[in-house]
Design a protein around this nucleic acid. Structure first.
Lengths: 144, 144
DNA sequence: TCAAGATTTAGAATAATTCTAAATACTCCC
DNA sequence: GGGAGTATTTAGAATTATTCTAAATCTTGA
């Protein structure tokens, strides 16, 4: 069973993209659907493979382009926890990422609340922050 | 004027590497010196270029190898704030990273204290965490 | 309907990292 | 001190990740 995006999603996408000066195209919708369909933090390459199943003519460059568009308009996040391919995540709620250094999987984790005031040097303008936790996931911790 | 590592550093390096089953080699020392010499979070490529000035025969693969060795033995950290090349940092004190999305520079920032207890799923074993803040640095914020 | 601009496409190009096999260096044991 | 065995380095090839390019297609507004 695959998750098909709801009308609200479509309208939301249109609005969010529009606010950034971008259009909702079938490709962007498809890439978004892939992200929402299985929230396992796929790489661009993974997204490409999955999107191709529904839309065989989609190209590599388009996937990168769509992912960038989605990130720019605030409906997806880029997750860079480790060397290697960047991952993507459609969960826009405040959360951090747990990266299993053994199997490489990435999991969303709730964060306790606002990051306590970090003292930034004068003039620095923060916009968002990312928390990445490294360790072993339940499965891998058990193995060892 | 370049920072030359102190004897303590050398002994410390030897110990830390040794505890991980690795030796302190001239190349590893050199790569470490580069990191300590200018703490601007260089990429592996940057480290390669700088290391070459003192040790012209050092190879690309060795720099990657040395950086991995230093990270594994806990004397340097890998910093992955964005798509693109990984950066490295010899500051092992508890700190986060500020990434300027305009100029791409990375700055160390103090963190307020222990990350408040994040509720991890059962069985997950955390080992370390990273906080990355994105925004504009003082210089770039001024320009705009 | 047409022109202008946005988007997609295939494939080439570039950048980042890892791999490979051979050469070198070091450590331990005799 | 001489070797055997292991660790490390080296150059360069290979692989992986991402970006670029130029042409084709789509959309929108006059």
């Amino acid at each position: 069973m695959r998750a098909r995006s709801h009308p609200q999603d479509e309208q939301h996408l249109t609005e969010q993209l529009g606010a950034t000066g971008l259009r909702l195209t079938p490709q962007r919708q498809q890439v978004y659907d892939v992200l929402v369909g299985k929230q396992d933090h796929p790489t661009a390459e993974e997204v490409f493979i999955r999107a191709k199943k529904q839309m065989p003519e989609i190209s590599h460059a388009t996937v990168y382009n769509c992912l960038d568009a989605l990130v720019k308009s605030g409906v997806a996040r880029q997750v860079t926890v480790d060397r290697g391919a960047t991952r993507f995540c459609p969960n826009m709620h405040e959360h951090g990422h747990f990266h299993c250094d053994t199997c490489g999987m990435v999991f969303d984790v709730d964060l306790p609340g606002e990051l306590p005031g970090v003292a930034l040097p004068r003039g620095f303008k923060p916009q968002r922050y990312e928390v990445a936790i490294h360790g072993s996931c339940a499965n891998c911790a058990k193995e060892k």
